[in-house]
Design a protein around this nucleic acid. Structure first.
Lengths: 140, 140
DNA sequence: AATTAAAATGTAATGATTATAAATTGTCAA
DNA sequence: TTGACAATTTATAATCATTACATTTTAATT
C-alpha cells in the first residue's frame, strides 16, 4: 500500500495505536516529507502549528511507532538518530556535503551470505556515504 | 597483511601516527581482541594495566585513528559507538541476546545498485540484527 | 457529570562525548 | 646535559541528545 495515499488514522488503528492528534501529525510528517528526519527536525516543524507540542511527546511517539513496527530507525552517524516511515527493505545514502539522506533501492536477493546461514536474521541495514549527484554538480 | 602479526609501532608510523605507549596499547587491543569494542570497554580493559590512563585519551586516540583511516566506526545501535581495526569491506551482525558483534564476509560485487550510479560512494556499511547461533542453541 | 485511564507536557536527571586547561612527556638545538 | 618548545596525556567542566518522573490535560466509560 502506498503510504502517501493511506488514511493515517485508520493505519494507526490497524496497528494498535490510538490515533491522537499528535500521533497523527507526527506520522503524517514522516509520510509526507520522507526526509528521514531527526527528533529535532520533526519537533521544530510541528511546533510551528502545534505550539503546545513537547519534545518528549515526539520521543514517546516515535518509540511507540518503533514498537508497533510502523517506522524504522536509521543510524548512520553517531549521535544522529533518524526515522523512516518506509519499512520496506531499502538502503540509504547520506551525502557528506549537504547532509541529505536518500533512499536507495537494493536487491538483497542477489546477496547470498555464507556467514549468516546459522544465524536468525531479523533486520538488515545498508547505508552508504559519499557525495550526492546534486553536490557533485554544484562543485564543478 | 595480517594485522595480528604486524609490528604495531611500525604500522602506526607508516600511517603518520607517532606511536606513543597509549596509542600502541589501544591499537593493540583492537587488533588482538577484534571484539568491536566501545570506548568504555577499551578504557576499562586497558586501565587495569595503565592506571593513569584517561578516557579522554581513548577518545582522542580513536578519533586520530579514524582520521588516519586505520580503523572504522561501527554504529549499529543509537548511543553505542564501536570501533574496528579491520578496515576491509565486511558486514556485521549484532546479536540481540548476547550483544556480541560478529564479522560477516559479504561479496559486494554481486550487489549492483542502480540508484547509486550518479553518486560518489566513499563508504558502505552493512549490518544485521537477530539471534546468533550460540544463543539459538542455548535457548532450546 | 463523575470517575478512571491514557496521553501529553514540563522539568529534572542521565550519560556519552567534547571542550578546555593544566600537567607530563618527548624532542632537539645549544 | 640542559633548557625550551611542541606534542601528548590527563583531569575537570561543559554540552547535548535522550530518558525518567511527576503533573496536567484529554479521552473514555459508567
Amino acid at each position: 500500500m502506498e503510504l502517501s495515499n493511506l488514511n493515517i488514522e485508520k493505519y494507526l488503528k490497524q496497528n494498535g495505536i490510538k490515533p491522537s492528534y499528535q500521533r497523527i501529525k507526527i506520522f503524517e510528517y514522516l509520510v509526507k516529507h520522507r526526509n528521514h528526519p531527526t527528533v529535532d527536525i520533526i519537533y521544530q516543524e510541528l511546533v510551528k502549528n502545534i505550539p503546545t507540542l513537547s519534545k518528549t511527546t515526539v520521543y514517546n511517539t516515535l518509540k511507540l511507532f518503533l514498537e508497533k513496527r510502523i517506522i524504522q530507525l536509521i543510524v548512520i552517524e553517531e549521535n544522529e538518530t533518524r526515522y523512516d516511515a518506509d519499512i520496506t527493505t531499502h538502503a540509504h545514502f547520506k551525502c557528506e556535503k549537504c547532509g541529505r539522506v536518500y533512499d536507495i533501492r537494493v536487491d538483497l536477493t542477489e546477496m547470498k551470505i555464507e556467514g549468516l546461514k546459522t544465524f536468525q536474521v531479523k533486520e538488515n541495514h545498508i547505508y552508504f556515504k559519499g557525495i550526492c549527484e546534486k553536490c557533485l554538480k554544484e562543485n564543478k
